[in-house]
């Protein structure tokens, strides 16, 4: 009898470990497939950007570069349009993000002070814009009326402060112990002094978060540049990419008509252009990973 039970237990345990093994394999399989599916398109693009142009044109490259070459990257250096567009994107990202972060921190700090007399009213004033918007066309008209049409500032000023980022900044600032602010007050500093000397050094996580959020937004933006910019010299790289990847317009037909070596390269240039656009973000973002996970959590708590 006793033996029987022991035997049963033994069998049962073995069955469970077997089950556990199979389910572990299934889980690992699903997770690895998911990871591969997300990464493969990028891998495909990179591998193609380094391959021989004629092989790229025939779509023969899918796992490893064929006759690796840098010819497309060298060609890219001669494309003055790409260079201008790339410099513009860097300008929008650096200038835009700096101003975004500065003004968001200023307002976020002020709105986190419990005794601030207009705290509730201004917070509400900001939060309402998250749910009600003026719409594309009225916004377009106002941007034009304020003289920003076809200037660099059209991409900086109307989107200077994001309501969502301001609210998470306020939420973060509220978690900073009041004693810190108090000690600054006792030393006779005003609010600007407190913000710059006491709050900034302890607010690094939120600053990192704002930098990555705003910078990615500027780097990836195409819609506003598309509707606000006419001048080719001001266009960011995303618009250039749209022309060669999606619209497949002017440049393609022109080059096909001339029928020179560039036609062969044209396909490959799509890949190299994606690589140079995506690369900076891909390199930077893993370093910010722990910050934006915090950010998602603050955002979730605040709704």
């Amino acid at each position: 009898m006793n033996n029987d039970i022991r035997l049963q237990r033994h069998h049962y345990g073995k069955l469970r470990t077997n089950n556990r093994m199979t389910s572990s394999i299934v889980i690992y399989f699903v997770i690895i497939v998911a990871a591969l599916v997300t990464v493969y398109p990028f891998f495909y693009v990179i591998v193609n950007s380094f391959s021989d142009p004629s092989e790229v044109l025939r779509r023969n490259v899918w796992l490893w570069p064929i006759r690796p070459t840098l010819v497309a990257y060298r060609e890219l250096l001669h494309e003055s349009e790409v260079f201008t567009a790339y410099m513009n994107t860097i300008w929008y990202t650096v200038v835009g993000t700096t101003l975004n972060v500065f003004f968001t921190l200023l307002a976020g700090y002020a709105l986190s002070i419990k005794s601030f007399c207009l705290r509730k009213q201004i917070s509400l004033f900001v939060i309402i814009t998250m749910f009600v918007s003026g719409g594309i066309i009225p916004t377009y008209i106002v941007v034009c009326k304020t003289g920003l049409y076809d200037t660099r500032w059209a991409l900086i000023i109307p989107t200077l402060i994001s309501a969502y980022n301001l609210i998470i900044t306020r939420a973060y600032m509220e978690t900073i112990p009041y004693e810190l602010t108090e000690s600054g007050k006792l030393d006779g500093a005003n609010d600007f002094g407190i913000l710059f000397r006491i709050i900034f050094p302890v607010a690094k996580p939120i600053i990192a978060l704002l930098v990555i959020y705003y910078a990615v937004q500027h780097w990836n933006e195409y819609f506003n540049p598309m509707i606000y910019l006419q001048n080719r010299a001001l266009k960011p790289v995303q618009l250039y990419l749209r022309d060669i990847l999606v619209a497949n317009t002017t440049a393609a037909t022109q080059q096909a008509a001339t029928g020179n070596a560039k036609t062969v390269l044209y396909e490959e240039l799509k890949f190299t252009n994606i690589v140079i656009t995506v690369l900076p973000i891909t390199i930077i973002y893993p370093f910010f990973q722990k910050y934006f996970i915090q950010g998602v959590m603050i955002g979730a708590v605040k709704g």
């Binding site: 814009t129 009225p138 106002v142």
Partner: peptide, 29 residues
């Protein structure tokens, strides 16, 4: 008393007023 805090939120208030609230009024068209 809150003059510095007001100065800090002033740019935000102006931007939201001009580029978020003014377009709402322009919906009149």
């Amino acid at each position: 008393r809150d003059k510095y805090l007001l100065l800090m939120v002033l740019p935000t208030v102006i931007i939201f007023l001009v580029y978020n609230y003014l377009p709402m009024i322009w919906n009149l068209i």
